[in-house]
Nucleic acid binder design. Structure first.
Ligand SMILES: [Zn+2]
Ligand SMILES: [Zn+2]
Length: 730
DNA sequence: AGCACGCCGACT
DNA sequence: GTCGGCGTGCTC
């Protein structure tokens, strides 16, 4: 029996706390306990028994255990503590992020098992002709057995219909404990049929499934990655000696976890499927969490935070659209669900499949280094041919709302043919580079060959490499014309210009705000689905997850913003956008066209992109990153500060930069610089970037700086944060 | 994050 | 005199 315990507390402090265990109390790691802290009483989670003694600290007593079993299994707890160290986030916040809010507050973890409903008959003949809704519900349950009351409700039925069927003994209920017998279909439903390429990939993955092995599945849009995932999951279940305790995790981006996606998996795995996403209510969250914790043999499909669920025995992990930015948490505990998924697979000694039509350079780098195995699916099922992708050179062309004459003409032709148009603009603060629209030259730093970044905040150009700062020149240093302008300007007017030019065609602006509420986006996209001619204007986000079969023309208004972005991932994201757009438009009989506006029509990457070969473009971009010592060839950490004035924010970061220069002179510091969107909600934001070839020294330095900042206690008006492996540098 | 302690201004 | 503002510091 332990004398003392080390615990995580739900407090934003980068440390753990120790307590004395009273006589006769038996504690295990992962258990929740009640402890005193100062004058408060808190729910804590045990992370270590009998830790090394702390000098000069008198320990307080543990008050009481909340249950006599660990709410977090060993593997999940280890994952969270590792992530806490890796991402330099307070351990208590990481650990408690993995508990449903009710359990964080200390609610009992014993839960009534959820109730699952099954048909008690194979047909609907016994129902009277009048009972139309009951019949529909019964038919639905026959097709999708094993539903809970909440899934029944979300399918549009209600409790009284269910009760009526129950009274006639046409349906029956089972609790979680019986799930193994009732889990349908088992053995798995007849497999999806695979083509030769899919078979080859599958058998190559199956060669070595008893050990940890990451697989990168490069599959162009429409090549059937999902079928491979499904067959792989079936195979893993069939091969497992104990399928009744086997769990699997499928991560998907926020936007693509639709009822259709779920239905597709349910077709094959029935009630083994469970869902996890941000729209679940507290009860659903707690129930699903508990099912996972109880070790039910689930295949869990979910978004980012699903990777933190308390799985006890994972037999495989899938990360779909692995390049998707929504896998990285952008505030608080800034973890990458993709990277944690790989860590989990390593813990579980199982395979992990990362799939994408446009793999991240991080994953390609891992494949290139032999850490991931690369598989390809390059055949597009179905009839639609590859889209035709062309560049429009907009040098010395007048732009109207960011639109060139040739693009407007093409839009007109498309609308007249009763087809749809998709236009991509860059998001706010995306392209802070100043370029000459006469000769296409971006303004470069006089001291290095880096491009200067335009900061609207003070109307200055800065070099993020050497710190050089200058005013905006009047004339182009290259050709002398007064044609300098920030790239991507005028896109606020795109919508208005289009509306004036095409008054009879709906122009739909889709942005972050319009997706905020679920369903609202669906409503807006109604004319799109119905296939009536319309023009959609939106950011990169539009290219994710949605298929637009009636769209035959896609336009990228400002490729230069991506090419010359201050974020070194700009070109990668541009290449992904072009491929995703091409893959999603013109699915049906019509072949789509993609038009890219640029001042760099001779740019090798853009031209190669038009050939549709993502991998070959991506390998070249990766070489450029290596040559420039940028991730994934090196490692990066960002420190950000926000405060009531830019001066205050920069001062803190200056101090931090000095500290780096003093303690780790071999680690280069970029910045401090005002953030591209320098002012947000009346607060001024700035950042520095630290970079190094090796992770351990950078990690040590990051850790020192965090400790320094934490014990320094900045005034409450200043807030700082650290971002390990930052994914967006704006 | 809480929550106390502490040290100055305007209220009964 | 003392109620209460929130700046600073600590929590095993
Ligand atoms: Zn420079
Ligand atoms: Zn010029």
């Amino acid at each position: 029996m332990a004398q003392t315990v080390r615990v995580a507390l739900p407090r934003p402090v980068r440390q753990l706390f120790d307590y004395r265990v009273p006589e006769g109390m038996d504690l295990v790691p992962g258990q929740r306990i009640r402890v005193p802290l100062g004058r408060q009483r808190l729910t804590a989670l045990v992370v270590e028994l009998d830790p090394p003694e702390l000098p000069n600290v008198t320990l307080k007593d543990v008050e009481s255990p909340l249950e006599d079993w660990p709410v977090l299994p060993d593997q999940t707890r280890e994952l969270l503590l590792w992530a806490s160290r890796y991402y330099q986030h307070p351990p208590g916040e990481c650990v408690f992020a993995a508990l449903p809010p009710a359990l964080r507050r200390g609610a009992p973890a014993e839960l009534p098992a959820p109730e699952y409903w099954y048909p008690a008959t194979a047909h609907t003949d016994d129902l009277s002709a009048q009972a139309r809704r009951q019949r529909e519900l019964l038919q639905w349950l026959i097709r999708y057995p094993g539903q809970t009351i909440s899934t029944i409700r979300s399918a549009g039925f209600n409790r009284s219909l269910l009760k009526a069927l129950h009274e006639r003994d046409l349906v029956r209920m089972a609790t979680g404990e019986d799930i193994n017998e009732t889990a349908a279909p088992w053995p798995p439903a007849p497999g999806v049929s695979l083509n030769d390429a899919q078979h080859e990939v599958l058998s190559s993955i199956e060669q070595n499934t008893d050990a940890f092995q990451p697989h990168l599945l490069f599959g162009i849009t429409g090549s059937g990655k999902t079928e491979v995932y499904i067959r792989h999951l079936q195979q893993r279940l069939v091969d497992d000696p104990e399928p009744e305790s086997a769990q699997a995790l499928v991560l998907v981006p926020e936007i693509s976890l639709t009822p259709q996606t779920l239905a597709r998996f349910e077709q094959h795995f029935g009630s083994r499927m469970a869902v996890w996403h941000s729209a679940l209510n507290a009860t659903e969250r707690l129930q699903t969490w508990s099912r996972v914790r109880r070790g039910e043999p689930l295949i869990l499909i979910g978004t980012r935070s699903a990777v933190l669920l308390p799985f006890s025995r994972l037999i495989t992990v899938v990360v779909d659209e692995e390049h998707d930015s929504s896998y990285k948490q952008m505030e608080g505990f800034r973890y990458s669900a993709r990277d944690l998924a790989i860590y989990r697979a390593r813990q579980s000694g199982c395979p992990v499949i990362l799939g994408s039509a446009t793999p991240s350079l991080e994953s390609l780098h891992n494949a290139g280094e032999g850490r991931f195995r690369l598989h390809r699916l390059t055949e597009r099922a179905g009839s639609a041919g590859l889209p035709e992708t062309r560049l429009i050179d907009v040098r010395s062309r007048p732009l109207e709302g960011g639109l060139s004459r040739p693009l407007i003409d093409q839009i007109e032709t498309t609308i007249k043919a009763e087809e749809q148009v998709l236009l991509f603009i860059n998001r706010r603060g995306f392209s802070p580079v100043v370029m000459c629209f006469e000769c296409g030259t971006p303004i470069e730093c006089p001291h290095c060959d880096a491009r200067l970044t335009y900061h609207r905040f003070d109307n200055c150009l800065r070099c993020h490499h050497c710190g050089h700062q200058q005013a905006l020149p009047r004339k182009c240093p290259e050709c002398g014309e007064e044609a300098l302008n920030a790239v991507g300007q005028g896109t606020e007017k795109t919508e208005t210009v289009l509306q004036q030019r095409f008054p009879d065609t709906p122009v739909l602006r889709i942005d972050r705000d319009s997706t905020r509420r679920r369903g609202q986006l669906d409503e807006m996209l109604k004319p799109v689905r119905e296939g009536q001619p319309c023009i959609l204007v939106g950011t990169q986000m539009l290219a994710k997850g949605h298929d637009f079969p009636a769209v035959t023309l896609a336009g990228i208004l400002d490729a230069d913003g991506g090419l010359f972005s201050s974020d070194f991932r700009g070109p990668e994201h541009l290449a992904q956008l072009v491929m995703q757009v091409g893959g999603r438009s013109g699915r049906a009989a019509k072949t789509g066209r993609v038009l890219i506006q640029t001042c760099q029509s001779g740019h090798p990457m853009l031209n190669e992109l038009c050939q549709g070969d993502y991998l070959s473009v991506a390998w070249k971009l990766l070489d450029e990153r290596k040559a420039a010592d940028l991730p994934p060839a090196t490692f990066m950490t960002a420190f950000r500060v926000e405060g009531p004035s830019m001066e205050d924010s920069l001062t803190v970061l200056d101090e931090l930069a000095d500290k780096v220069a003093a303690t780790a002179p071999d680690i280069p510091v970029l910045g401090p610089f005002p953030a591209i969107i320098a002012r947000k909600a009346g607060r001024y934001r700035a950042q520095i970037l630290l970079q190094h070839q090796q992770r351990p020294p950078l990690h040590r330095l990051t850790n020192q700086l965090c400790q320094y900042l934490e014990q320094k206690r900045l005034p409450a008006s200043l807030r700082w944060s650290v971002d390990v492996d930052p994914q967006s540098l704006d």
